[in-house]
């Protein structure tokens, strides 16, 4: 071999050997790809979750206000037996369900129009309109709704104009329901749109061909095939509402606390173990929700 060629050779050879090693062991390649996200997942996500669960079983010393690492179920006992916390949990879950249902009902027709009827330009315009609220801050949008729902706000002004009496929606559960439904609506529209768009036109034609009119085609063909999209969207709307504490604070009334508000308050007390115990409730609720969704066959098409 020539000396001049040999100069650059060791480097080249090492590279070749390295790529051969990866080529021979696919698992090594997968590991190299996943190492970083996996580390982040284990330490940041699972770590935080485990810390949450573990600290839920600790308690606070009433005098020193220090966390004592003693295993106890006291926190959970309080949660189950104190009607205040039960009411807050039920309010949170109930409102999350109502918001999810509302968004599903609102999103389906719009997504259907976007996916299957609108032309390219109309569709693009609707996409922009659906996504535009997400460009502005969540807080700004909530404050905007406060000015709409306020006693002398835009809503009552309009109602008075057409001769209707004032309504007091701000600082009520109804107000929260409206604001939550508005804020999370795009998260329902997008997955439902994607599911609708994936249905081949030929399925709808086959249904018509076999005698299925509009309503029958919707019920027997479209809805079952859109179900995964609806479930995906509902996971967003449900879990985002479940974990929120800002809208209840700004739009809900004094008796409209959510689980999140109690958690925040307890962390500030500071009673971190009790906050942790209450914070596990949404996690458990979501777990059950996903189980039911799987039972319904929502993930079969994924």
């Amino acid at each position: 071999m020539l000396d001049s060629a040999a100069a650059g050779l060791p480097f080249r050879e090492a590279r070749l050997r390295l790529s051969t090693i990866f080529w021979r062991r696919p698992w090594l390649k997968a590991l190299a790809l996943l190492a970083l996200p996996l580390a982040a997942f284990v330490f940041v996500y699972l770590g935080a979750l485990v810390a949450l669960f573990v600290s839920a079983f600790w308690q606070i010393n009433d005098f020193t206000a220090k966390v004592e690492h003693v295993w106890t179920l006291d926190n959970f006992n309080t949660l189950i037996h104190d009607s205040v916390y039960r009411r807050i949990a039920l309010r949170t879950i109930g409102l999350a369900s109502a918001v999810t249902l509302t968004d599903a009902v609102l999103a389906f027709p719009l997504a259907y129009f976007m996916a299957r009827i609108a032309g390219g330009k109309t569709r693009a315009l609707l996409f922009v309109l659906v996504l535009m609220p997400l460009w502005s801050s969540y807080l700004v949008r909530i404050y905007a709704w406060r000015t709409i729902l306020a006693h002398d706000g835009a809503l009552n002004w309009s109602l008075n104009k057409i001769g209707l009496p004032n309504v007091g929606l701000l600082y009520t559960n109804w107000g929260m329901w409206i604001v939550f439904s508005y804020i999370w609506l795009p998260f329902m529209i997008l997955p439902v749109y994607a599911a609708l768009e994936r249905i081949p036109q030929s399925y709808l034609e086959a249904s018509q061909d076999l005698g299925g009119r509009g309503w029958r085609t919707l019920r027997s063909v479209i809805l079952p095939l859109v179900l995964p999209g609806l479930v995906a969207g509902s996971i967003f709307t449900f879990s985002l509402t479940l974990g929120d504490f800002i809208t209840p604070l700004l739009v809900g009334g004094p008796s409209s606390s959510f689980i999140g508000n109690v958690v925040e308050e307890q962390v500030g007390q500071p009673n971190v173990p009790f906050a942790a115990a209450f914070a596990t409730v949404p996690v458990i609720v979501m777990g059950f929700y996903l189980l039911i969704a799987r039972r319904l066959g929502a993930f079969e098409a994924i």
């Binding site: 081949p200 034609e205 061909d209 095939l225």
Partner: peptide, 19 residues
């Protein structure tokens, strides 16, 4: 409309309902 015609179609992609 198709559902008022006494014809049936075998589609190129079969269009069998997957669910």
């Amino acid at each position: 409309p198709p559902y008022k015609r006494d014809v049936n179609t075998v589609f190129q992609s079969y269009a069998l309902f997957p669910h």
